[in-house]
């Protein structure tokens, strides 16, 4: 990753920042240093700190209000960005993780289980990336095998049986292009999820929290409401893949990212995303606790609303929602 810099000990991911984040980091380092000096020398620098804080706020706004599509992609893939299990841990202490597809294996790239969100029982299912090399080998960088989709569907059916609403958290580069994944029919597993999610008799709330990569994302993404974090992305192919195929040049990722209209703002304007969830200044990774609290609040609110719909209405609405998606011209007969 060329645009990613590290300072200090490369083993600690807490100091990682992107190129365009650097001015903010520098300023924040300066503020911290000033405070440090002041406390040692016992002098007041409140005025100066306040001035610098104002400056940092302005700088953040300046940078984040005009991010390019490619910068959004980098933010969505930020190595410090909270992942599914981070949100789960922050949202509730009551989480019972469930494992396995009951057919072949347990796919660690997809996690799920019962979660108590305040007083609501929820089945939460999400893609899970790893924070470091070791974790990523285990989680396969959040790229599911067929077993991941099948585990997800098994948990959804379990939720349906006990009338528990489903919340999915989407964060994957995409389906894993490997021999085993094809041998065991990942196309079938994805297709089946799309069909079964469309007729699941309990509410489904889908939230893109990071990377919404193609079929691997959609396989957890058919819902009554589709939400997206401000700096998440969602597209049919990665900018890298798109650049290689359509531009025949892998360097054209920035053009591809722009063309794919993959940001939350674009997707809301296009009518695909129902609601965009604002992130803390600088992105979810700058304040994961605040982000998780906001996420919990919105999940609660959305599920409250969906709880009013009876199963038949819910399914009818869900099918019609997807049936209406399309952009084409039709000659009048």
């Amino acid at each position: 990753m060329d645009d990613r810099n590290r300072t200090g000990n490369p083993g600690t991911p807490s100091r990682q920042y992107l190129d365009f984040e650097k001015p903010i980091f520098d300023l924040e380092a300066k503020i911290a240093e000033l405070k440090q000096v002041a406390s040692v020398q016992n002098i007041s620098v409140d005025e100066e700190v306040q001035r610098l804080n104002e400056k940092a706020k302005k700088l953040r706004h300046e940078i984040y209000s005009k991010l390019t599509a490619w910068q959004q992609v980098q933010l969505a893939r930020h190595p410090m960005r909270p992942y599914t299990l981070d949100y789960i841990k922050e949202m509730s202490s009551e989480f019972v993780e469930l494992h396995g597809d009951r057919a072949f294996a347990d796919d660690p790239a997809v996690v799920g289980g019962f979660l108590m969100v305040d007083d609501k029982r929820v089945m939460v299912i999400g893609h899970q990336k790893g924070r470091n090399t070791k974790e990523n080998l285990y989680r396969n960088f959040g790229m599911p095998h067929p077993e991941g989709y099948r585990k997800a569907l098994r948990l959804m059916k379990l939720a349906e049986k006990f009338r528990i609403p489903v919340v999915t958290l989407i964060d994957t580069p995409g389906a894993y292009p490997g021999i085993g994944a094809e041998e065991r029919g990942q196309f079938e597993a994805i297709a089946r999820n799309l069909r079964e999610m469309s007729r699941l008799m309990v509410p489904i709330l889908s939230i893109v929290i990071g990377e919404g990569g193609s079929g691997g994302a959609l396989a957890l993404g058919v819902g009554d409401r589709i939400l997206m974090l401000e700096h998440a992305i969602y597209s049919v192919i990665s900018p890298e893949g798109c650049a290689a195929i359509l531009w025949k040049d892998q360097e054209k990722v920035k053009d591809a990212a722009e063309a794919l209209k993959l940001t939350s703002k674009h997707l809301q304007d296009l009518g695909i995303i129902d609601r965009v969830i604002s992130e803390p200044g600088g992105g979810a990774h700058r304040d994961p606790k605040a982000m998780a609290a906001e996420l919990r609040r919105i999940i609660y609110e959305e599920l409250n609303y969906l709880a009013h719909l009876d199963p038949e209405t819910l399914i009818e609405r869900r099918r019609k929602k997807y049936q209406a998606i399309g952009f084409y011209k039709e000659d009048s007969p």
Binding site: S214, L218, Y234, L262, L270, I272, Q323, F327
Partner: peptide, 13 residues
Amino acid sequence: SIFSLMQMAKTSA
């Protein structure tokens, strides 16, 4: 992009 992706969900539904 997103429109073609969503056709997968649409036809399956």
